[in-house]
Design a protein around this nucleic acid. Structure first.
Lengths: 147, 147
DNA sequence: CTTTACTCTATAGTAACTATAGATAGTAAT
DNA sequence: ATTACTATCTATAGTTACTATAGAGTAAAG
């Protein structure tokens, strides 16, 4: 299987496959007579593993560790669960932060309905100061104190 | 006002201020005898504007446009509101995506309670395939069709 | 006068790719 | 056999918004 076929089967771009090789996530595969990369089914499976990890938002460094564990699966797997826990906490934090941001943006949006010039646009004016909600919403208060 | 003081007043790091200057968001300020940057109150306000935009998740390119508009506020501001709308849509999409990811991660987490080796860890096993939910949850079905 | 803190420039590194240029290989049609 | 087209190869640079580092000059305090 050449790189293009592997790309098609996995949905991973050709350049990205080469990139993963350079990064040491995939081993350098066999080469054909014409110096083309030739992949095995194990390579395919390994790439799928990598891609599923990526879909779960894992970093390449973390995936490297998981692959190493996969290659030498002797020791205790507890850290794997903890890694997932960390990710969940992380994702949670991101969601909260984005929801908060959304509030601010919606508030900002209401400041101008358009059709003004820059001097009279409420959005432009609001971008000079902190949002109105900052004094009252807990997230902003914490951020303000933290400054 | 030297760069350190501006940094303290705004909460923006010294290096970041210099970076914004290099990127053309802040004009190159006056220099003191000893070649130190000297900032005015206008510079301060401009930096605050930039930082508030950043807090709203705007990209430097977008901020550049907003600053240009601020500098020449003749024309119609409608695009500013549309820009905010785009951001809101964007943030919404990110939230949905993260909530979906969280589901997957929680499902993954339940596959192993730890104390196994790599061969018997349900998380490691699950990372070889797509998550269970993929056949039933709308987001995954769409992604699967898209492949 | 020395120490300490601040500032300067220039360069490289971060994450995870993406894009580009130029060369080579394989395949299909003429 | 020639042409055209596609896939592959390598190496390098660009992306975003900073961050880190090195090495040197400046200012303020003791």
């Amino acid at each position: 299987m050449k790189i293009g076929e592997l790309a098609k089967r996995t949905g991973c771009k050709v350049v990205t496959i080469r990139f993963y090789e350079k990064e040491g996530l995939l081993a350098a595969p066999e080469r054909s007579g014409g110096n083309y990369r030739v992949y095995s089914l194990e390579d395919w499976e390994r790439l799928e593993f990598i891609m599923h990890c990526r879909k779960h938002g894992m970093k390449l460094g973390e995936i490297r560790k998981l692959l190493a564990f996969r290659d030498h699966p002797r020791s205790d797997c507890t850290w794997v669960g903890e890694l997932i826990d960390e990710h969940i906490a992380n994702v949670d934090e991101q969601i909260k932060s984005l929801e908060h941001l959304k509030l601010h943006l919606e508030q900002l949006r209401r400041r101008c309905a358009g059709g003004q010039d820059g001097e009279n646009c409420g959005i432009m004016a609001s971008l000079k100061h902190k949002g109105e909600c900052c004094a009252s919403c807990p997230r902003c208060v914490v951020e303000t104190i933290g400054e």
